[in-house]
Design a protein around this nucleic acid. Structure first.
Lengths: 258, 258
DNA sequence: CGGTACATTGAAGGGGCTCAATCCACGTGG
DNA sequence: CCACGTGGATTGAGCCCCTTCAATGTACCG
């Protein structure tokens, strides 16, 4: 049960065995006091490793807390009664897992681990404590969730109004930006351990068609996906094609929060 | 600038000129004390009426607060550089508008009023006060936003993995459930002041095709949309067809919150 | 009465799906 | 060392859902 190091890209920092990704995430919104810092460190205390392919959250079950994804990649998805699957989003290190699905009596979505992952569990009692004792952290968390929600918004645009080709291009650029923000990507490359089947379920497409789009991107010299190695050859060209604008990924300090 | 009363359906309660929809929304998650009740009432103090078709939030501009939608319907959307529009969601009475778009330095989405609407504005300073002074309300708000996020998740499934026919059916059922929850719908009917063009942009379809799907639904005896009157003739048949399950719309009290 | 907004309908085309077959890399056991 | 199994990538053929681009209809409104 080794958890995979960041393979192949020398630009990636070694993944510290005890990182505090939620701290980095929230620090983007609020300058943290030493005391707040300490509380957040405690939130990472209860870590657990989960093997790839394992379910982290099963739709229909009850949960009494959330998780911070400390390392690895997860996907949140829903399966329809006719067997079709739609992946609602990818969780990258630093993301909160269980929002919003665990905030229901019975989880509304499932979450499974793509790679081996490390999660820190946060029981709701801890979360309540956070809101009660550290209101600034509560506000920052609120902001962080809003930023996650904005990603879903862009995902909606992807499914509703972009062609298959554009969708794939957009996803490649979004994941690059998100991974880069947490030190998991090079200037124009990253490692993406997803099968084309999974990409298809993210993009609302079929497997074979994703394959064709991957080939097109390569033939056009825009980007290449070989195995798990993604390389972007023409960032601006791809952005133009995919109508990618990264405003929605920017995390900036909350104004006027004293 | 009259704001439209709930026309045509006798089951709908008259829309009180001074309602407190956020109270009802949050009360579903947390039993409210009298003091909390009072604070929330204050949040509704600063009301404003906005005429139909008017923009409430313009993407790219800066905002210093959120809004509670007290009455009417809004839509949140994004327009791509090639002119295509995707509507990310409909805001109904009681919904928070500006989440997540206003929590960015520059708003990432636009919001416009479909009908004449009444909004209560909540500057961030008030919001911070809420989190600092009324932590239970902060928690409830967090939960409420999670529930809104779940709606977007289902919307993603709609665009990614349902046919045009199913999408329309699903939307009809979802809106019925949501409107009914806030006392704006009859047992199997409601008023929906959206053009087919707008429906198309919600569903990721073209206008003409929405028209055909509307006709199909009527011919199959499942539901009818005539002008703004929506009538569901076969609730279960429609639910089966659209793979509609309403778990994600259920708001239940937060457990263990003392 | 003309204008505007929206609903409706038709014809043609294409983007993406379905359903396979094939290929390929890799790990495993004999 | 090779046979085999397996998961995934790749490719092809046919088709159908949905789009595009109109034209037409229709209610409402100043």
């Amino acid at each position: 049960m080794t958890h995979a190091p960041n393979q192949s890209d020398p630009a990636m920092p070694a993944n510290a065995p005890d990182s505090y990704p939620l701290i980095e995430r929230l620090a983007a919104f609020v300058p943290l006091t030493e005391a707040e810092h300490g509380f957040l460190r405690e939130l990472h205390a209860n870590r657990r490793t989960i093997a790839r392919q394992r379910e982290v959250i099963v739709a229909g079950r009850r949960y009494d807390g959330l998780f911070i994804l400390c390392d690895g990649i997860v996907l949140r998805y829903k399966v329809l009664s006719d067997g079709k699957r739609q992946i609602l989003g990818l969780g990258l290190p630093g993301d909160l897992i269980g929002f919003p699905t665990c905030l229901f009596t019975d989880a509304v979505n499932s979450v499974s681990a793509v790679t081996d992952i490390v999660v820190a569990s946060i029981p709701f009692t801890r979360l309540f404590e956070l809101f009660r004792t550290w209101p600034r952290l509560g506000i920052a968390l609120f902001w962080a969730c809003a930023h996650e929600a904005a990603i879903y918004g862009e995902h909606l645009v992807n499914l509703g109004r972009r062609t298959a080709y554009q969708r794939l291009g957009h996803l490649i650029l979004e994941l690059h930006a998100r991974l880069r923000a947490v030190g998991r990507a090079g200037p124009a490359s990253y490692s993406l351990p997803l099968t084309q089947e999974v990409l298809a379920d993210v993009l609302g497409l079929s497997g074979p068609h994703v394959n064709r789009m991957v080939r097109s991107l390569r033939e056009e010299g825009l980007a290449s996906i070989e195995g798990r190695a993604v390389v972007i050859h023409d960032m601006t060209g791809l952005a133009v094609l995919a109508r990618f604008e990264d405003h929605y990924l920017a995390a900036e300090p909350i104004p006027d929060l004293t």
